[in-house]
Write a protein that binds this DNA or RNA. Structure first.
Lengths: 181, 181
DNA sequence: CCCTAGCGTGCAACTAGTTGCACTGCACTC
DNA sequence: GAGTGCAGTGCAACTAGTTGCACGCTAGGG
């Protein structure tokens, strides 16, 4: 499981509360590993038990208390251990593809509309990734270390979304052509 | 959830046993929706209860009995209903990206090796998809209906794997360049 | 003054997916 | 004749992830 490890990576970049982590997972980290706040809270609790993170409670002045988590040595050791461990290639769960494959068993026009909708969603994400790239990595050529790694992951997001947009376009063209006949 | 629907699509293409479905999920359908035989058996049972599929038991002559499943009208109706229902865009769970992002917290060389290994795995899959494409769809230009839909999904697999291979190459070049400095 | 949005925590109940095992029996090979 | 691979079914126990709700407090707008 990689949620613990994704959290460790994120916390290493900056300590934070469960809530903050959940927000990061809605953005940067979550671009390639989604998680809800529930999952994160439960996992953080488990990680404290394992000694992978430390938790310091800040009494809220007025506001409710916040629990700020930081990676512990055991967590960093676990991350290092996990990094060298071989993993499985990603298992794709592509619902839209199931719909395309089953299109002839229902309303093809509706499937076309659905693909068009997804095309726009992916184009939006692609735009968001590119915007982050321009803002945070205006000069990609000289990057090293952590900054380089962050940029490479973002590049993966760009490539994945671009591939999805292109695929949607191919599907739309072919299905529309087929309908016309 | 799309497992039921993926099963319905697969059964509509050809009736079969749970075991056969599991094997199809290891291949064509499983290229974009993975499932273990356990999941499939349990889901088939539920689908019988829902009246979405019918099950006819063939007494094995010598061999153990086999249960052959076929979509029922209620299943086809459910599939048609699901097809027009809008769905969420795919949530990516990209473990390798977590490793790349966390590379500076451990052994970068090991992460490079892991990326190289994944690169080969994705290249292999890409080759397999292309082989299926050449064999089953030698002339893609004149396809219509179900055959077209099948081919489009395969095209999605090709695009996704190609994007992954390209990304791995980009990561490898950048990390090796960074190590050299 | 109320409503909404943001920050922050968490429980309970659920669905989905994984892993490890157990059983049968055929065909093939070493 | 023992081991392996294939075809076929399935239970039990587990881990992971989702959904819906609840609580409390601040700040801002209408």
């Amino acid at each position: 499981m990689a949620l613990e490890h994704a959290i460790l990576v994120s916390l290493d970049e900056r300590a934070g509360t469960g809530y903050e982590l959940a927000r990061r997972f809605d953005r940067s980290i979550g671009f390639f590993w989604a998680a809800t706040h529930q999952q994160i809270y439960r996992t953080l609790k488990r990680m404290v038990d394992l000694g992978w993170v430390t938790c310091r409670e800040e009494a809220g002045d007025g506001r409710p208390d916040r629990k700020v988590y930081e990676p512990a040595d055991a967590g960093r050791a676990e991350l290092a251990r996990w990094l060298v461990e071989p993993g499985e290639p990603e298992t794709i769960r592509h619902e839209l593809a199931v719909k395309v494959r089953g299109a002839s068993l229902g309303d093809v026009a509706a499937v076309v509309a659905e693909v068009a909708r997804h095309r726009e969603l992916h184009a939006e994400r692609l735009g968001a990734y590119r915007a982050v790239e321009e803002k945070d990595f205006p000069d990609a050529s000289g990057l090293t270390g952590r900054r380089l790694h962050q940029h490479l992951v973002l590049r993966g997001g760009v490539r994945a979304e671009q591939a999805l947009v292109d695929w949607c376009d191919e599907v739309l063209a072919a299905l529309r052509e087929d309908t016309r006949r």
